[in-house]
């Protein structure tokens, strides 16, 4: 393993390429995935290596090609279905939640659906209400699915490889604002197990549980907190389903305070689930209520002045942590 920096997008592409080389059953299907390499250019170069039989452009028919993915997965292939914007989950929820998620259970374990739905999340791109949502809570609600939500290029590559090798359907969320984020990514074949949180920064006074784009925000807040003498621990669950409850609870027991930060809508969100896990598991150790910070409960507005206040920022997390710590 040697040090090498890749962007988040390159890390995803490398994971896909390595898995496609390793396993001929893996194929990619979605809109403008081939020559265009998706609008975000995440898949650039893959069609050149693997050809149009394995990097398949579709019509604008999300429910259709998602369903085709489910059927192919049930019969021996390992599809990676590309849903360009997470908002389009609205179109494909039946295929994901009623078909893919349930086939294994309903068949008494006889059938399985080894497939990955890759999709995006994240606001502040000035893309307005139908192209900016972070809807991972929707799928994290459904038994039978697994949900990965990486925050670094390293995690993205390792989690994607695990997702492809998993025998259950996985929904994989990529923050589109993070595609250009750089980080060290080993060129060798490594995987990251699902359900194992990562401590992104160790600390003693407060636990900041953060997902995806909010990990960078939490790390920034931790820097600000360090300047006023507060040592924050930043934990990234990396998968919301399965969720590594013990790492979260142990950290909260140690620090006795916790804030959960996530870019999904705050109401009924991922933050609610994680906060309740911590409140339950670390109850006797807590010195303050577990706080939640999610996206504001409004459709994402277009105007930059409005959009910017809908997502938690470093400063907002810093202020909240300061208050919880009585500073």
């Amino acid at each position: 393993m040697h040090d090498r920096e890749l962007t988040f997008a390159e890390a995803i592409r490398e994971a896909l390429a390595e898995e496609m080389r390793r396993d001929a059953r893996v194929f990619i299907i979605g809109e403008d995935v081939a020559e265009a390499g998706t609008p975000f250019k995440v898949l650039s170069g893959l069609v050149e290596e693997f050809g149009r039989d394995r990097v398949i452009d579709t019509p604008i028919s999300e429910p259709g090609f998602s369903g085709i993915g489910v059927g192919a997965a049930m019969t021996g292939m390992r599809p990676v279905v590309d849903i360009m914007f997470g908002d389009f989950l609205g179109l494909v929820m039946d295929q994901i939640a009623n078909q893919a998620a349930k086939v294994h259970y309903m068949s008494g374990g006889k059938l399985s659906v080894p497939m990955v739905f890759r999709t995006t999340m994240g606001a502040t791109r000035r893309s307005a209400a139908q192209h900016s949502q972070s809807l991972h809570a929707w799928v994290s609600h459904i038994p039978g699915l697994k949900v990965a939500i990486p925050s670094t290029p390293y995690d993205a590559k390792g989690l994607m490889k695990t997702a492809i090798r998993d025998n259950s359907p996985v929904v994989f969320f990529e923050d589109k604002m993070m595609y250009k984020l750089k980080g060290v990514v080993p060129s060798d074949d490594y995987t990251i197990p699902f359900g194992v949180a990562d401590v992104k920064r160790a600390g003693n006074d407060i636990t900041l549980v953060a997902t995806s784009s909010m990990v960078q925000v939490a790390l920034g807040a931790a820097d600000l907190l360090a300047k006023i003498g507060v040592s924050a621990e930043v934990i990234d669950p990396r998968t919301t389903l399965p969720l590594d409850t013990s790492t979260l609870i142990e950290s909260a027991k140690k620090t006795s305070r916790a804030i959960v930060i996530d870019e999904g809508y705050e109401q009924y969100g991922v933050t609610a689930e994680i906060a309740s896990v911590i409140a339950d598991g670390a109850f006797y150790y807590l010195d303050a209520p577990v706080k939640r910070m999610g996206a504001m409960n409004v459709p994402v507005p277009f105007s930059p002045v409005l959009e910017d206040v809908t997502v938690p920022t470093e400063q907002m997390v810093f202020e909240m942590a300061k208050r919880l710590c009585g500073k």
Binding site: I60, G90, L91, R126, A128, H131, P301, F302, S303, V305
Partner: peptide, 22 residues
Amino acid sequence: GKGGSMHIADPDSGNLGANAIV
């Protein structure tokens, strides 16, 4: 300012709105 390019609606002229979902 809430809609932007992809969501302009103007009911006064009968326009029920643009849509960013194809």
